[in-house]
Simulated assay, not measured.
Amino acid sequence: MASVNMADVKRLREMTAAGMMDCKKALEEAEGDFDKAVDILRLKGAKDVGKREARTASNGLVAVKHEGDSLAALLELNCETDFVAKNERFQQLAADIVGHVAATKPGDVPALLESQLNGKSVKELLDETNAALGEKIEIRRFSVLDGGYIVSYMHKTDPQLPPAVGVLIQLDKPNAEVAKDIAQHTAAMAPRFLSPADVPAEVIEKERSLFEQMTRDEGKPEAAISKIVDGRVNGWYKDFTLVEQAFVKDNKKTIAKVADEAGVRVLAFTRYKVGQA
């Protein structure tokens, strides 16, 4: 059995919330393969592994810029400490960059870094702020939604800090009340995909494989395994796809039902939380 170092054990524990010994055993069983160790913990039922796989320790903020009701940009700008996240220069940099994103719609982060803002490249502006504030500052990700009717919701997890959670919701037609409800729901419930049809095939294949192994480990009859796995996949959709989630204000309705009753359709969403995938 492979030996593991305590740094990897600690990292796995922080990522999955599993116990220290469970993490150590999982890494040993996986022969040091970190991703495989995560799957092993999931098979053993470790608490919230699937929902915590992407957690990191980054600080920073989420910023938003609207251009009317049909275009908006969301940006995650990271730093090393919450002290810098509270800094006015850092917050102004985020506001400038997210406005630039909304105006220019760059294709990806490298393209954004190379683009010109106020006579300098965005990378140069980041480097200058890095030097001035004494911390590594980087753009983690951004999103632009264009068309339909778009609302945003920004949430502060700490009243002394800038928003750490940001959401964009795109509907096919205006409905401010429903859009706001869905945006707040999305901030709270952290869906990963819009609908079951939007989940990549490889993601479902992995989940189905894990559920099948769980079901076999539970000693279920072979003839019942396929049906049980299908049920667990459907449960996964209800947890991780927005339109299948139970509405936080009325758990007897799905988000799809809420939208349908209002005569609207959810076209897309973006949810960022600082430090999470």
Rank of each mutant, 00 (worst) to 15 (best):
Leu145Ala: 03
Ser143Glu: 14
Lys257Glu: 13
Leu77Phe: 05
Gly119Lys: 10
Lys65Ala: 13
Met1Lys: 14
Met20Val: 15
Tyr272Pro: 13
Gly219Pro: 04
Asp181Thr: 12
Lys156Gln: 14
Ala7Gln: 07
Gly235Phe: 05
Arg42Val: 01
Ala268Cys: 06
Ala2Gly: 12
Gln184Glu: 13
Pro162Asn: 02
Val264Gln: 07
Leu74Glu: 09
Gly235Asp: 15
Thr56Glu: 11
Ala2Glu: 14
Lys25Ile: 15
Gly231Lys: 12
Ser121Gly: 13
Ala132Gly: 06
Met214Tyr: 00
Lys10His: 12
Leu61Ser: 10
Gly119Gln: 08
Arg55Gly: 01
Ala94Met: 03
Glu212Val: 02
Arg52His: 12
Met6Cys: 01
Asp35Cys: 08
Met6Thr: 13
Gln213Gly: 00
Trp236Ile: 05
Ala26Gln: 11
Glu80Asn: 06
Ala190Thr: 12
Arg13Gln: 15
Val203Trp: 04
Asp158Ile: 00
Ala176Arg: 06
Gly45Ser: 09
Arg271Glu: 04
Thr254Ala: 03
Val274Glu: 00
Glu28Ile: 14
Met154Gly: 13
Val122Leu: 10
Asn87Phe: 04
Val258Pro: 06
Ile137Cys: 05
Lys220Pro: 05
Gln160Ile: 00
Ala262Asn: 03
Ala73Leu: 05
Ala164Asp: 04
Asp158Glu: 07
Asp181Glu: 15
Lys120Asp: 11
Thr16Lys: 11
Arg52Pro: 03
Lys257Ile: 00
Gln245Thr: 06
Glu29Asn: 12
Asp158Ala: 06
Leu112Arg: 07
Asp198Glu: 15
